[in-house]
């Protein structure tokens, strides 16, 4: 298999040593079928073991390996190096505080995520012995694509509103909240719609559509956010007509 040498420019940052992030260059002999992650792992294994990065499954399903590659958020295990020229810049995900090298702070997302109550909310859950709920394929298709989110956070890196408004709930968290709102087994839409109207509101979304452009799993969070806007308004209107206990 053919090998070419490419130059990789990695962001480096050790809070104990560096005032601010800096870059470091590495020359790597890359095979033609490599993904970006293969090159980063080569750097770590053979050239500079002090590079810190997150990865695990290498099959685009665990969501660990999101990074900026030449200025665009990518899953590095899925991104072919053959799409790039001789110089590849790899930075940590945009819009996130940087912990170390290519590793970003994820707790901000975990806070936003938990705030939308991403679980089935029901007044009374069936007992296991009573069997499963019936759900038609149509009902499943109402929310199925939104459940495909792997929490890779590329959408947060792409969103201009996330970059400017720290309170904004953000694409993935809204998509997952909306996923539960649309699940026929859930009864918590009212609570989530209220959350969607509160601080960090879904209405901060200004239709950039960048989240859906970068999503590696075709979740289409932009669709979820805009559907959520519609539903949040309907829910508010219902609340005026039927205060408390409605829906």
């Amino acid at each position: 298999m053919r090998e070419v040498t490419k130059t990789f420019v990695l962001t480096r940052f050790d809070p104990d040593q560096d005032e601010a992030p800096r870059t470091q260059e590495y020359k790597v002999p890359v095979r033609e079928d490599w993904k970006v992650l293969d090159a980063i792992n080569f750097i770590k294994d053979e050239i500079d073991p002090s590079v810190s990065h997150r990865w695990s499954c290498r099959m685009a399903v665990c969501g660990s390996c999101g990074m900026m590659v030449n200025g665009e958020p990518k899953l590095t295990c899925k991104t072919a190096l053959s799409d790039y020229g001789d110089r590849v810049e790899i930075e940590p995900l945009a819009n996130f505080p940087i912990v170390r090298d290519l590793v970003v702070e994820l707790e901000g997302f975990m806070d936003k995520f938990k705030s939308v109550k991403p679980w089935i909310v029901r007044a009374k859950q069936k007992a296991a012995e009573e069997g499963t709920y019936r759900q038609s394929t149509e009902e499943l298709s109402a929310f199925k694509q939104f459940s495909m989110c792997i929490n890779c956070m590329l959408c947060y890196s792409a969103c201009p509103v996330v970059a400017n408004e720290p309170e904004f709930i953000g694409p993935a968290a809204i998509a997952l909240g909306h996923r539960y709102n649309m699940d026929s087994r859930d009864e918590g839409a009212s609570e989530r719609n209220q959350r969607f109207r509160e601080e960090g509101t879904v209405f901060s979304c200004s239709y950039a559509n960048e989240c859906s452009e970068v999503c590696p799993k075709d979740v289409d969070p932009a669709a979820a956010v805009n559907q959520a806007k519609f539903n949040a308004v309907i829910d508010w209107a219902k609340g005026l007509v039927m205060p408390k206990g409605g829906s």
């Binding site: 809070p15 819009n95 505080p97 912990v99 806070d111």
Partner: peptide, 15 residues
Amino acid sequence: AMAPKTPGKTRTAPP
């Protein structure tokens, strides 16, 4: 941007 409610225990570089 994307700051956690509880600040992390190590210094981070800004987004």
